[in-house]
Design a protein around this nucleic acid. Structure first.
Length: 722
DNA sequence: CACAGGTATGTTTTT
DNA sequence: CATACCTGTG
């Protein structure tokens, strides 16, 4: 390896990139701006370690957040090294944690057949736990409880570590958390956060294991470091141990996931926790035009407390950013689609153009417009293959066969398809399971043995248990796809869906079940490892890697996605839509400064996706939750330098020209108009945004400069126009 | 047990 | 406006 020619590794790099790639071992933080060759630096660093420093691939651990990123990185490393990077660990935090836990299930105090809960499974389990505690779901919303549990786990906290501080609500939450943990233990279940927490505890509390892995992974590399949460960073610190050979790449300006626990301040902590850290800034951008970068720099400049970075390019300035003000969301979409057709005619492929928006709901109008124009498109996001109900139903059978004590799966399929096992019988089962501290399956066995059930229910339950046993026998040692086939046939799911949902929907589900069989067949190519039978690997794969959202990948489609899912991607042409205060920045982020800054980073991410052309659009009126709302251009637009912008159709004033909404009721003899400035004795000055009702009930929505947005009854408010 | 009808609710998403 | 979820009825 050492003899390998290193010129292809360092030659294509600029000076800063080379500095990072060839740095001596030790803590290194790469602040990599958008489009500055972040992944390239990671990949080349690994190649450098192997080829120039003679590091064995066995001692390299590279972590990413998504399976996609991990796959790309692995592929590029192998390409660079000209062969498989045997023994290197490249994967997601969750994937690697899972690997550790499978290998050391005993030390981690897990059953060998532990199963992974995805977030939907987790929520269902929370529901069940709430029920068993006889707590009201309206008062204790499963989603909130789930968030609480995950947040605690991400802080590394078990129930016993949490002080309630005399807060009764918190005390109850801890109680639920405790019961939830017990339920997981009984069922041999591990949720996503638990994978990380367990893996962390495994290493932390196991001196010899920790020593082993520290000695093995002498080089740890992380991508998207700004997205790490507290636990993930703790995990990295633990592994980096004394050698401190941690190579982190990240960008504080692209931190857009604080709402799900990501801690940008880990970037600052890194420098503090690892004295002698070498910090390298990558600011040269290879993606966008000078104009786009100037505008993006100007925007992000409005954020405080940045680590400091300014993107530059030695390429062309390019065209100005085009700004379009539409009357409403339909005109906005028409403009975008129209431009895309034009650009398509001028030689841009459809796949080179993307429409970005803040929230998923915005895609609808674009889709309608694209359908009308006959332009193929692809919407990112949505349900992924292994998240579909029918797939999860089928896999629940498989899990239950593998692990009879998996109550979660038991509940899911015990009456699917309906076999006369209603809530009454289930309640009896749950009670028996709870009283004897056993699983539902075990409780079912003993209730049947004791003859404690009415004949009908007993028969049905007996049938279900027999079905599971038959399945187990029939699956035997067959090939994986055959085992899946047994499950979907014997379970009756194939007949169930078309019966329940007439027409296309039911057929689609059957089609997906067939697809599951072929997915299993494809999976058979994977090497069976000693520690894990193929079928369990398949189940883990289904939970950890939910697959693609849209099966039919069009050859050449216009791309539609949220700003969040656009991170990490690039497109020659980008349409940034819906830049309106309240939508983007989102209204729920407006009240706190840090929320607003994150929105601004989101906008920065969006802008820096564009390579050659960037369009920014907003509508002056938009239908939100059913009612027509007047909207003001996003403050982010005014933060862009005017000389970077070109108004596509400059228009004065706020009011739509033709279909101006009917005016609200009279006030001082004159009708108030939407968009008009008014003043209120208490709230001060503001702009009329919306109105509803008429006569004495007429109300207007006014966005006050100080007090924010309020609904006021015109008859009482005594608004003065100003 | 399935279905109909009512009501509450409405960012962003990966694992 | 749309949907998701809950409750009550047949």
């Amino acid at each position: 390896m050492r003899a390998m020619d290193v010129t292809p590794i360092i030659d294509p790099l600029n000076e800063r990139q080379r500095e990072a790639v060839t740095a001596p071992p030790g803590p290194l933080l790469v602040l990599a701006g958008a489009g500055s060759g972040k992944t390239r630096v990671l990949v080349h660093r690994i190649a450098w370690l192997v080829a120039a420093e003679g590091v064995s691939p066995l001692s390299i651990l590279a972590v990413t957040f998504t399976n996609k990123a991990a796959g790309e990185m692995r592929a590029r490393i192998e390409q660079m090294l000209g062969g498989p990077a045997g023994g290197m660990w490249v994967g997601t935090f969750h994937g690697l944690a899972h690997r550790l836990l499978r290998q050391h299930w005993q030390e981690a105090q897990l059953p060998q057949t532990f199963q992974i809960l995805d977030s939907e499974d987790q929520k269902r389990l929370v529901r069940r736990v709430l029920k068993s505690l006889e707590m009201d779901e309206a008062r204790w919303q499963p989603g909130h409880v789930q968030g609480f549990i995950n947040a605690r786990k991400e802080e590394g906290r078990r129930p016993r570590h949490i002080e309630d501080g005399g807060d009764p609500v918190r005390r109850q939450l801890v109680r639920i958390y405790t019961a939830y943990e017990a339920a997981c233990r009984r069922g041999g279940l591990v949720d996503f956060a638990e994978l990380l927490l367990r893996a962390h505890e495994l290493l932390r509390d196991n001196e010899s294991l920790l020593r082993h892995y520290r000695e093995r992974f002498r080089h740890v590399l992380v991508d998207e470091f700004q997205d790490t949460n507290t636990l993930q960073y703790a995990w990295l610190r633990l592994l980096a141990g004394e050698h401190h050979r941690l190579f982190a790449v990240g960008d504080d300006d692209q931190s857009i996931y604080s709402w799900r626990g990501a801690r940008v301040d880990n970037l600052q902590h890194f420098v503090r926790d690892f004295p002698g850290t070498l910090t390298v800034r990558l600011e040269q951008n290879y993606r966008s035009t000078g104009t786009i970068l100037t505008a993006a720099n100007a925007l992000i400049e409005n954020n405080a407390g940045r680590m400091g970075k300014e993107l530059w390019t030695d390429g062309e300035d390019g065209e100005p950013i085009q700004l379009f003000s539409a009357f409403n969301e339909y005109e906005e979409a028409e403009f975008v689609v129209d431009r895309m057709r034009q650009l398509n005619r001028d030689g841009y492929a459809r796949r080179e153009m993307a429409v970005l928006y803040r929230s998923n709901a915005q895609s609808r109008v674009f889709e309608e417009c694209l359908v009308a124009a006959g332009m193929p498109y692809r919407v990112y996001g949505g349900l992924r293959f292994f998240e579909r109900a029918e797939i999860k139903d089928a896999l629940a059978y498989v899990r239950l066969v593998r692990n009879p004590d998996d109550d979660s799966s038991f509940e899911r399929v015990v009456n699917l398809p309906a076999r006369g096992l209603g809530n009454r019988t289930l309640e009896q089962l749950r009670a028996a399971a709870r009283d004897n501290q056993v699983s539902l399956r075990q409780a079912a066995g003993s209730l049947l043995g004791a003859g404690a059930l009415p004949p009908r229910a007993a028969g049905a339950l007996q049938g279900f248990l027999a079905l599971l046993e038959d399945m187990a026998v029939e699956m035997g040692e067959q090939a994986l796809h055959h085992q899946i086939d047994v499950v979907i046939r014997r379970s009756g799911l194939m007949e169930h869906y078309p019966q329940k949902e007439k027409g296309e929907k039911g057929e689609a589900r059957v089609e997906n079940l067939r697809e599951l069989v072929s997915a299993a067949r494809t999976f058979e190519g994977v090497e069976e490892s000693a520690e894990m039978p193929l079928i369990d690997q398949f189940l883990a794969h289904a939970a950890l890697e939910a697959g693609d959202a849209q099966g039919d990948e069009w050859d050449d489609c216009v791309q539609l996605m949220t700003l969040h899912s656009a991170k990490g991607l690039e497109f020659p042409v980008v349409f940034l839509s819906g830049l309106e205060d309240g939508l983007f920045p989102h209204k729920r982020a407006l009240d706190d400064p840090s929320g607003l800054e994150e929105e601004r980073r989101l906008c920065y991410v969006g802008m820096t996706r564009a390579m050659r052309a960037l369009y920014v659009t907003h509508a002056e009126s938009r239908r939100l939750y059913g009612s027509e709302t007047l909207t003001l251009p996003s403050r982010f637009i005014s933060e862009l330098p005017v000389d970077c912008l070109h108004q596509v159709r400059p228009r004065g004033g706020l009011l739509p020209r033709a279909q101006s909404a009917p005016a609200p009721e009279e006030n001082d003899g004159q009708a108030l108009r939407l968009g008009e400035r008014v003043s209120h004795a208490r709230f001060g000055e503001g702009v009329v945004l919306n109105y509803e009702g008429s006569g004495a009930q007429a109300r207007v929505q006014v966005n006050f400069e100080q007090a924010g947005s309020k609904w006021l009854v015109i008859g009482y408010a005594n608004l003065q126009r100003c």
